[in-house]
């Protein structure tokens, strides 16, 4: 207490967790992983009008430097195995946003023979964004929710092997 009172005004006090979470949520680099229709809306979200750059989000081409995977579109069974490989290639901490009905639950294609109904059958998901396809505003809201979720994380205990706080966790790969 005495430290806060005696520190100059330009000094802020916080916890380590909060600082780490703040840095993490402010530079979420997302992997360009457009699968189907939602990919176009994802590009529009990154485009001039919705402008994801204002959240410090930048598209990245490879999973090895990405923090966030936006599953944008229908996940077919042929692609599902590759998606798991890509997820495993991402460094911790890693987050997954499931964008659109198809990756949430199969959507229109849930009875199709070649479609995996829900990406959470393959990898764990942090935020589900509904819509077919979701508007850029909807995806932005989903990403803001992810940022809120990141802010609640306890850094010391977190790893991808333990369930995350405050969100649905799918089956482990």
């Amino acid at each position: 207490m005495s430290l806060i009172n005696s520190a100059p005004e330009m000094v802020l006090t916080s916890t380590v967790d909060q600082v780490l979470n703040w840095t993490r949520k402010s530079s979420l680099w997302y992997m360009l992983f457009g699968l189907a229709c939602c990919a176009i809306e994802m590009m529009h979200t990154g485009g001039p009008r919705a402008d994801l750059d204002r959240f410090g989000m930048a598209p990245r081409a490879t999973p090895r430097v990405s923090d966030l995977m936006i599953i944008a579109g229908t996940l077919t069974l042929k692609m599902a195995l590759r998606t798991r490989v890509l997820y495993e290639q991402m460094p911790d901490p890693k987050y997954v946003v499931s964008m659109g009905s198809c990756s949430n639950c199969g959507g229109l294609f849930q009875y199709a023979y070649s479609v995996c109904d829900g990406v959470d059958k393959v990898i764990p998901v942090d935020v589900y964004v509904p819509g077919c396809p979701p508007r850029p505003e909807a995806l932005t809201e989903g990403l803001i929710m992810l940022q809120k979720k990141i802010m609640q994380e306890k850094w010391i205990t977190r790893s991808s092997d333990t369930p995350r706080l405050g969100g649905p966790v799918g089956e482990r790969a």
Binding site: A36, C37, G73, T74, T76, M79, L108, F109, A112, Y113
Partner: peptide, 29 residues
């Protein structure tokens, strides 16, 4: 084939009017 969504099979199951929303997804652009 990484995006093969069996649209042609679905057409055989959903009827004439019902297939219209699926045609959107044949070429979403």
């Amino acid at each position: 084939g990484y995006l093969h969504r069996s649209i042609e099979k679905i057409a055989e199951k959903v009827g004439w009017h019902g297939f219209m929303p699926y045609t959107d997804r044949v070429d979403y652009v």
